[in-house]
Design a protein around this nucleic acid. Sequence first.
DNA 1: GGGAACTGTGTGAGCGGTCACATCTTGTGG
DNA 2: CCACAAGATGTGACCGCTCACACAGTTCCC
Lengths: 350, 350
Amino acid sequence: MSKSSPAGKPSIRDVAARAGVSYQTVSRVLNDRTNIRAGTRDRVLEAMHELGYRPNRAARMLATSRSRLIGVVATVNGGYYGPTSIISAIEDAARAGGYAIMLTTPRNLSAAELSSAVEHLLREGVEGIIAVAPQTRAADAMSALADPVPAVILQADGSHGDIGLSVDNELGAGLAVRHLVELGHRRIAVLNGPGDWTEAIARTRGFVRSVHDAGAEVVGAADGDWTAESGYRGFQQLVGCGATAVFCANDQMALGLLHAASDRGLRTPVDLSVVGFDDVPEAAHYIPPLTTIRQDFDELGRRAIAALLARVERDEPLFRSAIPPRLIVRASTLPIAPTRQAPRTSRLVL
Amino acid sequence: MSKSSPAGKPSIRDVAARAGVSYQTVSRVLNDRTNIRAGTRDRVLEAMHELGYRPNRAARMLATSRSRLIGVVATVNGGYYGPTSIISAIEDAARAGGYAIMLTTPRNLSAAELSSAVEHLLREGVEGIIAVAPQTRAADAMSALADPVPAVILQADGSHGDIGLSVDNELGAGLAVRHLVELGHRRIAVLNGPGDWTEAIARTRGFVRSVHDAGAEVVGAADGDWTAESGYRGFQQLVGCGATAVFCANDQMALGLLHAASDRGLRTPVDLSVVGFDDVPEAAHYIPPLTTIRQDFDELGRRAIAALLARVERDEPLFRSAIPPRLIVRASTLPIAPTRQAPRTSRLVL
DNA sequence: GGGAACTGTGTGAGCGGTCACATCTTGTGG
DNA sequence: CCACAAGATGTGACCGCTCACACAGTTCCC
């Protein structure tokens, strides 16, 4: 068999032979160069089509020393809605920009797992990394690790230099609080997310500030770990605090809290108003349907890629921009009832 | 600058020069060949470390014409728990096997979107494809598309030749039914998944057969689309059918059904027992906590990679194996109350 | 003690593209 | 009508690695 054996996959040279041109001409067609006669181009394209030619990425990568690969690091444990949506948006935007996504899913966001994931990506030759690493520790580890290539850390706050990008969590918490205050609530409790997550910190900060700004009062606080289970336990800690409304740092915890409230015979929203955060698809069917803060994860993913590619391709500095979330009002919040204005220690009041 | 300029990334030749050996010896170390003197290997390894050498994947791919890349096609719209868990398990197993994952997330599972996603992966040079394409139509399209490389289709049933792999949905439905029957339920309704999803079809089939085998009766059926919203509507269709228990083809629909039942003043599980399918993390905190069928998505992902790699590396035929799911009993199911044995048309009976 | 059968290491070629440059056409103006 | 620029195409080298093979140095056994 000669070198142009049709056995293996066709190469640029097979196409050239078939079209009666040199391999370089084929390469020009491949790269959309301008200086090619239309007729020649057509012949080459036809030859490619006939041969079922597909350019070899490895060869191009080797020759250009560009991989057009973006690495993504994300844990999707528990099937959280946020990371998953973000990844999907990232892939979309990356593909549109001519890049492919290489995914790693470390079991957790410990420094060791992260470092192993990043090392894996670097070995694969990615040109940039997007980490969905919403824990402060993880974000710290990432900013240290992603030395050789540009990186964007999602859901990281301002403390991580110029490589963080996130939804405006403080604003989101503010929207929730203002909504409750407008309904007449003055005694509000909070169910925080884990203290080492940037988003949780920002939401708590936004919550506390907004409550004070509105002249209301934080009458109770409990810490959760994002799970519905921790929401259930959080409710139990809040019992007796006298709140008429609770702000939960995410929807899952709000679900657990609704469950606990129901177990205790409390009627949401008559006895207690509840606000969540995220607007997961199921939130509209919690009992009662949950008032919550919707995050635009798609937009976050798109911006992450836009920022990273600007850096990779044009060496522009990463721009920071916070994405504003929206308040979605459903049935879990209600104007405070006249009889509840002065809460007594009834079992129907938190 | 000479060819061994330390400017760019170090190559195998830079390492060789530093270690005082030929580039081939370095290559041998890289590939864990046996015939190398221990001292030589150590010197090479040290040189690599000093230079911060990282092998160039593109060059290796080109030389070996192997990419060690696995393409994954999956839609993660709506943040469903299943696909996400599967992807994570796939990545884990692939990395352990020395492969990297290239992810595409088509917006939907239409033939056009699938084909574009697969084409993208093929251009990237993947050696195999795993598609999380649980719709029959999508599975059909995939088995047609994935011509040039081996493929595994997840959550596809036996009708897709030897490339499908899934949890044993029929068995799962059977577990749910037997549980209800043991509790005394004889009049059972079903909330089906969308008719063009292989899993939905298998669950329905398993449900119907098990009900008949147990001498019980299917007194009502409604079709949903996996969403909580469709579960809510499904309940309304089932009203009046006289069932004492409902089997829902997934947890989200069960959630919607619980919501609708609650809106109508029906108490689950006193008035109505409900079983779901999937065991999403939140299911333990639905109101009431949901009895459901747990799928082992991790195992499914691992088996998918195992099957695919066996095919890619040793050209073994893909083996089919159904993974058995487990019944998780929670509070949404209860033995049938004596007064409900002969259901009257009370508003408390479906 | 001299090949056979190792072990350890080096050399040339080539994977399939791209780049820089050379060469051949073609068009244009004086 | 020819010089010269611009456009279209071809040639050689090279990206970083692996393969097949060549070759040197040991061990070994009759």
